[in-house]
Amino acid sequence: MQRCLDLLTSGLTPEGILQQLINGVTLGSVYALIALGYSMVYGVLELINFAHGDVFMIGTFVVLGVTGQFGLTGRSSLALVIPVLLLAMIAAMALCAVLGFTIEKVAYRPLRRAPRLAPLISAIGVSFFLQAWIATYVSSRDHTLPNLLAGDIPLYGDVSLRYVQVLMLVSSVVMMVGLQQLVRRTSLGRGMRAVAQDREAAELMGVNMDRVISFTFIIGSALAGVAALLWMLNYSTNQSIGFIAGLKAFAAAVIGGIGNIPGAMLGGFLLGLAESLGAAYVSNVSCGIFSSAYEDVFAFAFLILMLVFRPSGIIRERVSQRA
């Protein structure tokens, strides 16, 4: 018993907790960006686009390719790094958008009237195809970028916030706000909301459904391209990261309230925090029974609990009332 109490108090330092919060928010900002894509597609089509995570994975390889082309190293000057990263982002967004558009057209559109399980199985097929394609024709190993944009802002004790983390946080919030405006204010956004509420009525009202759905995929996938760049600034990639990152992003979308844009964002941050804090303190809390090896369990457990107790998510969807 004493051992458990010792465990509880040891390791709980303010620096540690602050650092874990930063870790969680950093991870969460990427989850949030991927979650936006899931959430939009689900909102419009009611389909879990299982291949979305793999679109993101392809994005990370595009970023790798572009930065590799320019031979960036940790010592490259900012005057080179920033334009190259911008170019990498644009390339990743463009390629992901094309890919998302193609996937919808090839794998989902023919199944729009099929039974409900059909598009889901097709999505799994696409996901495996993309992973295997990268492993076969690009690389089946792990890759990282050099440490770009080094430098940090000291916060408290020896904890500091790195420029990259600030960038990740700011860009994901900017993307979310931009997307929110797009859905609220443009005619395309109106079309999306209409299709989400009632597909047939929207079509009767003159909304071009195919176009709206295509655009939903294009925008969601382009956001995954942005997420890919941010991810590569901090983490590593291989052909299978998309599946896991995608699952967690989906969990984030559900936690926040699927179909809801700020919800997806909130869910992403919450999930990132849950993972970081969970991995860090589960051992202290559980008296050493559980260890940080259970990190992945938290995301799934969070998702399951959420679905059981509050299936509509933290922010109830407003785009349309289903369920």
Partner: peptide
Amino acid sequence: AREHLDATASDFTAQLTTIKGK
């Protein structure tokens, strides 16, 4: 400190922060 990570994970900062505190 004795920590574990998942071989499929990409983010190891949670474990590393715990280790740093020790």
